[in-house]
Design a protein around this nucleic acid. Sequence first.
RNA 1: GCGGCGGUAGCUCAGUGGAUUAGAGCAUUGGUCUACGGAACCAAGGGUCGGGGGUUCGAAUCCCUCUCGCCGCACCA
Length: 569
Amino acid sequence: MTSLYVQVEAACAAAFASVLDGSDPIVRTSDHADFQANGAMGIAKSLGRNPREVAQEAAEELAANPLFSSVEVAGPGFINLEVAPEAVLKGLEAMGTSETLGIETAATPKTVVIDYSSPNVAKEMHVGHLRSTVIGDALCRLFELTGNRVIRRNHVGDWGTPFGMLIEHLLDLGEKSAVSELGMGDLDGFYRQARAKFEASDAFKERSRQRVVLLQGGDEETLRLWRVLVAESIRYFDTVYRALDVGMQEADVRGESFYNDQLDTVVSDLEAKGLIQYSGGAACVFPPGFTNRDGEPLPVIVRKSDEGYGYAATDLAAIRDRIEVLGADLMLYVVGAPQAQHFEMIFSVAKMAGWLNEPVEAVHVSFGNVLGPDRKMFKTRSGETVKLKTLLDEGIERARAALAQRGERDDIDHVANQVAMGAIKYADLATDRQRDYVFDWDRMLAFEGNTGPYLQYAHARIRSIFRRVEDGTEPGAILLNEPQERALAMALLELPEVIASTIETYSPSKLCTYLFDLAQTFTTFYEFCPVLKADEVAIRASRLSLCELTASTLRLGLSALGIEAPEQM
RNA sequence: GCGGCGGUAGCUCAGUGGAUUAGAGCAUUGGUCUACGGAACCAAGGGUCGGGGGUUCGAAUCCCUCUCGCCGCACCA
């Protein structure tokens, strides 16, 4: 069963094809009808014909299609389309029997590698990781929902010069107490102490340098200590992921170090292809079109002048691994906007090297900053970065307080958790990811407006209807007599198209907007159309079906965003 | 200097493959209903879509230019 939109578009494309083959009918939902087709104007222009005439020709063909109950040409050549009641009912019926509510799964599933979250070992996860983690996880769920093979990748920062100082600090503390400190999640404290010693003591600095040499040289004891640091950090990250309810697992971790033994090959392969130029002792590739401040070509430094490797080399190795070993068709990098140029250059080099070829695609899914109420980067009052764990805990407390105000309950811990995570995630996902967004507890936790809690509550309220059925009425055949019933039906049928465009643009905010609109449309329906109080059994049964479809759509949509939909709130 | 992203109602944001009156939420005002657990509902006010120019029958949307904000621009990641 294809979605209603696809059916309408196909019908319009066919109708226009008899005027001009292969033209885009430009079908949109409309304020003046169910759909409108705007293709006539463009076609008329390219044919030098009168647009209304073109529209009229197509309209006549469309009028003969049983999919439509009304076809009208309006204005300069718009075709306004009303979908026939039978087609709407058929669509709802198919939706009701579909596991995915009519969302089509990919005919040829893609392997999608999604790189997100990517915290640093021995450093706290902070708000900066929130968006990557939340958006990345939502994209994973959306691609899974549509039948693709998703491989999550946590590109953890687990290598580099800071590890000399971190290992030395670990030794100073004694392995045991270091582990317990890290285990408690005080990663920032650990890092800061190491940093402070590094800056204050030349002796410590020298030890750290030596330690880096040992680490890179593969000294067993050093590696063992390094593994302790990594393991403790990853265990801690995992507690944050579990708290946030995101799908990233320990098994998805491929830290930078994972690619260490591939870096030489990256350089030698680039060299073999004649792409390497040496500049100041560093092995560079100069992708065309990138210049620095002085207008000179900007390099991707694959190997530094000290023979060490930087993140460019690691990213290139990772891209190869994802294509050649994992078989990626699509690679997403859910990383903040400041790295846009870096990824452009990396992708460019990967193409020059012949590693990244059509139709395989790499996309930097960039996002804006999280801002505080002052519209500056979100910081604590004392100007420090906000620990992610602290943020989540505060959210739970605030949600608990909000719920407590609404009445006593015994499952408040569980629901407060669901509401808090829903609120935090939704606030992040609902704003266009390119824009910065303002972090505001009061707004995100409100039960009114475009918020997570509002949608969760909307869902719970609808579910409650089913618990209050007293006469044994069950959802039954749908009848669409009232305009509010029909409006709700049309909104429900939009789901597949919304999912498609959400995925196409990697923009979960589109799904958020849809779910909020749907909840509003339902409210209007619910206000005008009594469900349990309707006189006739058939009407009650029909409206219960509409309630059920709406609740299912909200639940599925929220779930695709990584947000739980409690039965009761 | 070059480049990227943003500038839409008091506030937070939708809407940018051109298209009929620019939408929603919050806030404000006025109504409505013996409230399916009011997430109430209906209605009103409120916008030079950052400024200017251009293309077009038609521009928030496309092009040019200016402006403001954030960010990036070689060996940190």
